Simulated assay, not measured.
Amino acid sequence: MKLLVAGPETLGEVVCSTALLRCMQQQLPVLELHYWVAPHLGAGLVHNTFINHLHLLEDDPDLLPASDFDQLVDFRPSRSLRQWAASHRIAYLSAHNSFLVSFLSEHFGWYQHSDQPLPLQYFEVVRSLGVQYDGRGLNYFLGVADEIAPADIPLSHSAGYLALVVGESGYDKQVPLPLISAFCQRFTLPIILVNSTGASADAAALARIDPDRIYNACGKFTLNETADLLRRAKLVVSNENDLMQVAVAFNRPLLVCRSARGASPFFPPLYPKAQHRQGAATPFASWVWPAASPALLRKAAQGILGKREKLWVEQGLKLASSFWQGKETA
């Protein structure tokens, strides 16, 4: 079977699809798996051994090399791609994403939240193919050239560090930056700031708190090198989905910093089932900034921290210290 996967449009969702790629490759007989994704999202797939052919192309399916595909699995999805599949007599499966949900999320910041990890929702799309989740989590493969050399980070961070993801939208879009600054000031162990988008004014501001202890890696490494920084971290703190999913793929302890106001979609991370056996500690905790009035948000953004804000910082410090010491939450 020649199967084409039209990959999602964000890095985090692409990483979430890797569990499905592995299971399709291992469970479908004589499968030739093609994966089509935008060029800027291909770095994490170049070394994926479960993909037979990787197509790094923009949105036009006519740019794909001529091939008699038997099946198209569409994770975008789009009407034009459905029509393209029909015109080429290719069986079509797609993720269900209504126009109304897309419109509300794009224009009003309204998102659907789910208790089910996003990778498991992808398996629902291919239920008719008989593919089942194998319990082994996500994948992110690196090449030898992607690995960070010891000299690439400060010597003071070589014994262990917290990787703090500074999302593209900036923490002030979900949690005011001064609250993250307060956390960085009081967390006395080494921190490396990372993102997937390049230089960041927020990261520069956080690094100025203590340049020796807080190393700003934003814009200094490739995406896969940044992934290697996450792989080596003792703990990852993230407020955005993209690098959060990369950290999950490496089974790193994760503290998700997010707002209860629903500023972005949130899906629980999917770790291997072996890490969720009864009585075992889980490498994940959610550090939720409670919904607040616009007036309180403005004060927090100005660095005026009230009792609620100080309690939130304390909670994050306790969770981070617990993870650092290997005492994950049960």
Results as ranks from 00 to 15, higher is better:
A6M: 06
N224C: 12
A292H: 13
E225F: 02
Q275G: 01
L305I: 04
A203P: 00
W110P: 01
P272L: 07
N224T: 10
Y161D: 04
I214H: 04
E13K: 13
R258M: 11
A260Y: 03
I192P: 01
T188N: 11
H96K: 14
F108I: 06
V236S: 00
S98T: 13
F50N: 07
Y133R: 05
A66H: 14
N239A: 14
N239W: 06
V165G: 02
V125K: 07
W36N: 05
V313L: 06
D212Y: 08
L305M: 11
V166Y: 05
I51N: 00
E314N: 09
P176Q: 11
K2H: 15
N239L: 02
A263N: 14
L45Q: 01
S128V: 10
V126G: 07
Q315H: 12
Q325L: 13
A86V: 05
G306I: 01
Y92F: 12
H40A: 09
L296S: 13
G109W: 08
D242A: 14
Q174P: 01
H157S: 05
L3W: 08
K307H: 11
L54W: 01
D115A: 15
F103Q: 13
R298Q: 15
R79S: 13
S259V: 03
L142M: 10
K220M: 06
L317V: 00
V131F: 04
L311A: 14
P61K: 07
V73M: 05
S259A: 14
Q83G: 00
A38V: 00
L193I: 04
I148F: 08
L255P: 00
L3E: 01
L142F: 09
L4N: 04
K299Y: 02
A249Q: 03
V131M: 09
Q174K: 11
K299M: 14
A151G: 10
Q315A: 12
G198L: 14
K327I: 11
T18G: 06
F266Q: 03
G44Q: 12
F50I: 07
F284K: 03
D62T: 15
S321V: 08
H55P: 03
S128I: 12
F108M: 08
Q132P: 05
L189Q: 13
A163H: 00
S293T: 15
H40S: 10
Q174Y: 13
Q27W: 08
C257V: 10
A151N: 11
T197F: 12
V194P: 06
R261S: 15
T222H: 08
G262A: 12
L206W: 09
S17W: 02
Q26K: 14
L243R: 08
L255K: 05
V246Y: 07
E147G: 02
A330E: 09
L230I: 08
R232T: 06
D60V: 04
H276C: 07
H88V: 11
R127E: 06
I51Y: 09
A151Q: 14
L56R: 02
P77Q: 13
Q275R: 09
F266T: 03
W36M: 03
C257G: 01
Y215Q: 00
G170A: 07
R76V: 00
L41K: 10
A285K: 04
Y171C: 00
L28C: 09
L235I: 09
D152P: 00
L223C: 06
Y92R: 06
L223E: 03
N241S: 15
H34Y: 03
W36P: 01
F108T: 09
